[in-house]
């Protein structure tokens, strides 16, 4: 018992002040890209050719954040002339098409969220997470929200074991052919009104697995999605911001 107290004392209080106080991520973190529209067309073409995810449209100089893995190749290839990645982790969007940006800015999530969700779930939100393929990073960084550093339950948001107890599903992974029916069963088991969240490049667009016959082209090709959270995986702060901004 003494050891428990001693270790507890050593560990101290670790929960971050976000969202009351801003968090600054290290410069190496690649968040919301800033696009330079005055960039030479040739440089944009070079970036588009180097992108492993085909997410740069060289015609209008836009990036699809729903496909982007935030690997930073385009920044290195263009030497920062076409794109630089900022440390802004606020990437959530209520509409798929808004994730395709040629300015590097996203509309405020709060303005685009469905108002009735705020009313229904603003004070208490229970989500059922469904992993439908993917690499387990998205799940790992959702789990992190339950650690003392983020302490998600202080916002009245928690992840529950049964879809029957949930207000919605939080889906990760490219929806493999072998997970599709289990995912739909979990979705059907959530009582309406329900919310659907697609988290990570895989759930939004198939991610790095696009083109494989074993995965879908994204969750919204199967069921309608209310909230998209980009990243590979989304930083826990990206998820936290999206949940707070969309529901609170």
């Amino acid at each position: 018992m003494f050891k428990v107290f001693k270790t507890r004392f050593e560990q101290g209080y670790r929960t971050m002040k976000y969202p009351k106080e801003p968090v600054v991520l290290p410069p190496s973190y690649r968040g919301l890209p800033v696009l330079h529209s005055d960039c030479d067309a040739e440089v944009v073409n070079k970036c588009a050719a180097a992108c492993p995810q085909d997410c740069i449209n060289s015609k209008n100089g836009s990036i699809d954040l729903g496909r982007c893995l935030f690997c930073g190749i385009c920044e290195r290839v263009s030497d920062g002339k076409f794109v630089t990645f900022s440390q802004n982790f606020e990437l959530g969007s209520a509409q798929r098409e808004k994730l395709i940006t040629s300015t590097g800015s996203l509309p405020d999530l709060a303005a685009h969220s469905k108002k009735h969700f705020k009313k229904l779930f603003g004070r208490s939100l229970q989500l059922r997470q469904v992993c439908a393929g993917g690499c387990n990073n998205c799940e790992a960084d959702i789990n992190v929200l339950a650690t003392p550093a983020y302490d998600l339950s202080r916002f009245g948001i928690s992840y529950v074991a049964s879809p029957r107890h949930a207000d919605g599903i939080h889906v990760t992974g490219p929806v493999t052919r072998n997970m599709k029916s289990a995912l739909l069963a979990a979705f059907e088991a959530v009582p309406a009104p329900r919310v659907v969240i697609a988290s990570g490049a895989c759930a939004i667009s198939g991610g790095p697995f696009f083109g494989s016959s074993e995965v879908s082209a994204g969750l919204d090709s199967i069921i309608p999605v209310d909230l998209y959270i980009p990243g590979c995986p989304p930083h826990p702060l990206t998820t936290l911001h999206a949940l707070l901004r969309f529901f609170k």
Binding site: P52, C71, G133, P174, P208, F209, G211, S212, E214, V215
Partner: peptide, 26 residues
């Protein structure tokens, strides 16, 4: 979780390979 990785690694463009590999198991 089957995503068809072994065959995807062969058929996709070489520049995609390291990204597929990183996502075999994150």
């Amino acid at each position: 979780q089957h995503r068809g990785i072994e065959r995807l690694l062969i058929k996709s463009a070489p520049l995609r390979r390291p990204f597929i590999v990183e996502n075999i198991a994150g």
